[in-house]
Design a protein around this nucleic acid. Sequence first.
DNA 1: AGTTGTGAATCGATTCACAGCC
DNA 2: GGCTGTGAATCGATTCACAACT
Lengths: 208, 208
Amino acid sequence: MTGAVPAATVARLPGYLRALRELDERGEATTSSERLAALAGVGPAQLRRDLSWLRPRGVRGVGYDVALLRERVSQALGAGADLAVVIVGVGHLGHALASHLGGEGSGFRVAALVDADPGVVGTTVAGLPVEDDREVADVVRREGAVLAVLATPVDVAQQVCDRLVAAGVRGILAFTPVALRVPPEVTVRSADVAAELQILAFHTQRQG
Amino acid sequence: MTGAVPAATVARLPGYLRALRELDERGEATTSSERLAALAGVGPAQLRRDLSWLRPRGVRGVGYDVALLRERVSQALGAGADLAVVIVGVGHLGHALASHLGGEGSGFRVAALVDADPGVVGTTVAGLPVEDDREVADVVRREGAVLAVLATPVDVAQQVCDRLVAAGVRGILAFTPVALRVPPEVTVRSADVAAELQILAFHTQRQG
DNA sequence: AGTTGTGAATCGATTCACAGCC
DNA sequence: GGCTGTGAATCGATTCACAACT
């Protein structure tokens, strides 16, 4: 298939990439859709349909070349490119995320930390200086960041979001419980922990 | 409508609940689907269709009663019930999540913290003692927890998950990048930060 | 007059099932 | 013989558009 990759497919690609990494590290050079799908927790038909958008060049009767496929998926996801990410809001969560993502090969580079609290600005967190909120735009441009993590209090989230967008950020991961308004060329994904727990709570009430 | 609420609808309910809370706090007693939808960032038709699963009892020509609707949604999501949540893995992320959820009215009660590291077990984090990993089952049963947050290293995630499920946990929020295997009555939601960033990275590459 | 609730239509995503290829 | 890639079928979710109601 050719054309735009469906959003539902994109959302599963990271899972495939992880599974491929696992196979690669085990030294398995080739894999079947059945095996890979099992590792990723989906059905084989779905996996093949998803991969078909990436021109996978699998071999009928044999399977996929792990290294090649890994490269394809990795490239689609911008992994390995070490894209710059700016973290806005260095409270408990922002701090933890800085360490978490900064740590090892997450595939991303935490380029800068930004906060509004004068007591935090100037300190060093996870090896990086915390910079001033109001200079967010400069920071984004300086680092060439296209991605941002938003971990501020709710009431300033939209304002910070606007500044990020104006500075050229194209994707925002929001830990803040609010529906951010952004222009259509910017993508927002919600990572609201309480909301996720609420969804789980719903499911536990049903079907039990 | 009656019957099982679609998963896609459930995933939007927390957003509606937040919007309703906002209206309620502003003292607005009644609202239209148009207004509520705008606050939640969805279309009015979708909002009405979603709410129809909850028997909303809106009034034609007038709108919805905010307090009543809030109660309906809140109840569906188990919010206000202060469900017990156990956090497993008290590293950077687990620590931050404990503070984040324990803090204010998240609608959940962080009932216990659990870790494998002997250097962490016994310490107090966010006002709670960190308990031993191996007693996870006892802790879950003691607190009557049906929900768990999984923030352990990858390599022990499946094992911990198995113990949680055996102890009666029905919903797991996993920050670990791995496809957990659980029986069908247990729901898992992934909150893998790196994966979320990868998805955003994909979208920034296209269309722009 | 104005807004909900919902059939009907549309759109998108998943699954089936098999032709095509190694 | 075995596995991929994909048309066709199915399933689910969104949107349209309007009848029902206050």
